[in-house]
Design a protein around this nucleic acid. Structure first.
Lengths: 219, 219
DNA sequence: AATTAAATTAAACGCATGTTTAAAATATGC
DNA sequence: GCATATTTTAAACATGCGTTTAATTTAATT
């Protein structure tokens, strides 16, 4: 009876990966603090204690989940930004276009990687996850500096300070769109009987942030 | 020894108000979910059980804290908006200028009322406080509709849908600026050795959202 | 002043959380 | 194949939360 020919399904996924995948999905859906370790371990079909065994703490798990994306996204972004260094003329749109490929590449991390990453980013900023902000700033501060410099080059009329603030407002609007997106879609559907979806939100968002970023101080 | 002539200090503040004030301060600083009833009652110097006695539940307390501001802000905003109805020509800036007086008037509710209100709003949106959003939508939906109509009038090139989304992105950027403001100020100070403060953030923010709101779809 | 109502208080309840423990099961190395 | 790590497991632990209870104190009413 030991028919070793077929081997139905013994995929043998490591406990670590099972935890990371389940945590990521739940974090992206509910937020970090709203998700309990018991939810995660149940979803991952592993023992409760294994999170602390493999990761040390919930906080460390959160960092591991985010890091898995950052380690793919940030180098990919840096590659794209380097291309712009050589170009003689760039505008804001070109800089933000650099995000597209790196964002899409996140789908190799997880099936719905792009969406998950943006929502994780949203919760990381809206919840008080100071350690995450610190981690990003220290681990990938140079990439962010590069981004800032390019945006400054694309919009030389603005000071570096201007760009700093506007970039973070862009982030704020984006994050907000991610976290509140679904609720707004529902309101829009009810209010305007519109067939609003995620794509609708993104299109409106891009127009908005492009306008905000290029906003001239004097009319 | 019963010198009733002087009466040092028997200010006699109601328990309700003490709770509301303490809760407001803590909510504005830490967020709703991060603040416990034990923190609140300790800060207010009242018994733990009095929150549930006077307000029924923590959720009801949150609503009471927010309502105290909404009941001042929304009518004040409506008054300002009515003025614009009579004017023949208006632009986005004029509409947003309508927020200024109502916001400042909140300092009569509490010493740092304006700041508190904006941060409460921020947490109300970024935390999953669905009941607050529902409350605002139902209690002051007409004022918000009025606001939307005026913004549409100020920018007739944009559809009502466009305005809906942009208005919410404005809200997102604002909320983000409030919640993350202090952290960003510290980064800015360290990064640019700038004497950045709240006022700095607001000025940059207004420029940004005005640009985003008036953004033209075709270059 | 006596009686009734309202407000305050200390204590405990029930529940959920992240974390730790110590024994059992599994995998690894010689 | 045995000894040794490594991993998994069930259970308990410690803590903090919102809420409830029941007794006491304070205020209001008659």
């Amino acid at each position: 009876m030991s028919e070793s020919a077929v081997r139905p399904k013994k995929s043998k996924v490591s406990t670590q990966k099972k935890i990371l995948d389940a945590a990521e999905t739940l974090f992206a859906r509910e937020g970090f603090e709203q998700t309990s370790l018991r939810q995660i371990t149940q979803e991952a079909d592993v023992n409760l204690a294994s999170v602390n065994y493999h990761f040390g703490s919930k906080k460390a798990l959160i960092q591991a989940v985010v890091a898995r994306y950052m380690n793919v996204f940030m180098p990919a972004l840096e590659t794209e930004l380097k291309r712009l260094d050589d170009k003689p003329e760039i505008d804001s749109l070109a800089v933000f276009a650099s995000f597209k490929a790196p964002l899409i590449s996140l789908d190799q991390v997880h099936k719905r990687g792009t969406e998950h990453f943006l929502r994780l980013l949203g919760f990381a900023y809206s919840e008080t996850q100071g350690h995450l902000r610190r981690y990003t700033q220290t681990a990938f501060g140079d990439v962010l500096q590069h981004l800032l410099a390019l945006l400054h080059r694309a919009n030389p009329k603005l000071t570096e300070q201007d760009m700093f603030w506007r970039l973070h407002f862009v982030l704020g609007a984006t994050v907000f769109a991610q976290v509140s997106g679904q609720a707004l879609i529902e309101i829009a559907q009810a209010e305007f009987d519109e067939r609003a979806d995620i794509q609708t939100v993104i299109e409106h968002l891009i127009t908005f942030i492009a306008g905000g970023l290029d906003s001239q101080l004097d009319g």
